[in-house]
């Protein structure tokens, strides 16, 4: 099985969409969680949204051992589903808050990298 990350290219993030009711789901599924339809298709979203919650890891995971501290974020995409991601160089809660605008900016290994949105909205 592939995660959300194997298909993310060029600022887009791969998700699952129900061909019957249009619901969008970020996590691997074989049925639609709204209508139970099994007609699930892959789709790509623009990848910008708001931070729903986050943490800043000082004790890193193995794959990010050289990157601590960094942030793990759960992001509510403007297009209507919620994804997880990684943010480089966030060292203190003064630098990140719930509600901050962030955007998907590609991958680091298999992780989905998010960055703070720079102006313009």
């Amino acid at each position: 099985m592939s995660g959300q990350n194997t298909g993310g290219h060029g600022g887009r993030i791969e998700v699952y969409r129900c061909a019957d009711c249009g619901s969008v789901m970020a996590t691997f599924t074989v049925v639609c969680h709204s209508c139970m339809s099994a007609r699930i298709e892959k789709a790509a979203l623009g990848g910008s949204g708001r931070v729903q919650t986050f943490t800043i890891l000082s004790v890193p995971s193995e794959a990010f051992a050289d990157e601590a501290p960094y942030a793990y974020v759960i992001v509510r995409l403007h297009e209507g589903c919620t994804v997880s991601g990684w943010m480089r160089g966030v060292g203190s809660p003064a630098e990140l808050a719930i509600g901050d605008e962030v955007e998907y900016s590609g991958m680091r290994g298999q992780a989905s990298v998010f960055k703070k949105k720079v102006s313009g909205g």
Binding site: P60, A63, E67
Partner: peptide, 8 residues
């Protein structure tokens, strides 16, 4: 595939 992979 969604959590650990993103460093958490």
């Amino acid at each position: 595939a969604y959590e650990a992979i993103n460093g958490v």
